[in-house]
Write a protein that binds this DNA or RNA. Structure first.
Lengths: 133, 133
DNA sequence: TTTTTATGTTAACTTTTCTAACATCTGTTG
DNA sequence: CAACAGATGTTAGAAAAGTTAACATAAAAA
């Protein structure tokens, strides 16, 4: 199991995911059963979702809301992903093969400390007005 | 309960936090008891930590490693926070008073979809080399 | 030395999640 | 219409993870 970056780092339990996506746990599990998302499992068999997974579930939800059935969603996501990674640079693939989960947690720690992640709230600020009635 | 942005949005269970910080659950709970962090609680009384909390715990850990005791850490964090928010702009304070947890989850959803969050991996890439032996 | 601080360990209990089964609704198809 | 398939709800029982509280202990401070 290797995670290429924080997007695919398993962080969230299903309860948080249901709140973020407004999908039910039943739906999330069913979509996994159908191969639409593949959260990893904790030692104790609990699903752990990454940002990537959540993002994917949000896409799924939008398509569901548009009346697309699961088979259709599968296709849409497939097409999208093919479209998205046109060339794979060798460094970005092979370099990361054997990074352990622990190392990736270290990476996230480092990011939390050093990156701008904790300091750039401009997007939130900019989007805030949408949530005032 | 109002969270000003994603930094303070409660997302992680204690197990993930212990992995991210390499602190024990006992330590994390103790630091909470001493008022160093204040994770919110889920409906069922589980601690839920935000990125902000994790960041704070990482700072605490660094200070611990430097031999600072908890009383000292409390002071350091206090000074830092005072230093950090010199002026509070009215918009950034009062505008956000009544944002519900649900709204903030919507905000995170929006961010996940629209912001660059899911697309900027440059920091990870740049830091990657540190984890190769 | 005695006390305090910080952390480990354990026990009993509660919450959350898991799987699996069965129920139900809805849209499609014969 | 009737039957079926797809998608989701609901429930039960078991396992995992989290909670508090108590007691243990090593190291530092007094």
């Amino acid at each position: 199991m290797t995670y290429s970056d924080r997007k695919s780092m398993p962080l969230f339990p299903i309860s948080i995911v249901t709140e973020l996506t407004e999908l039910t746990a039943r739906q999330v599990r069913y979509y996994e059963e159908k191969g639409l998302v593949t959260p990893v499992r904790s030692k104790g068999n609990r699903r752990l979702f990454s940002f990537y997974d959540v993002d994917r579930l949000l896409e799924i939800k939008e398509l569901i809301d548009q009346g697309v059935n699961l088979a259709g969603i599968k296709q849409v996501l497939k097409v999208k992903s093919e479209q998205q990674e046109p060339i794979k640079h060798k460094e970005e693939v092979t370099m990361r093969e054997d990074i352990s989960e622990k190392d990736l947690h270290k990476m996230l720690r480092r990011e939390l400390i050093e990156s701008g992640y904790l300091n750039h709230s401009s997007i939130v600020k900019g989007e805030l007005s949408r949530f005032y009635h």
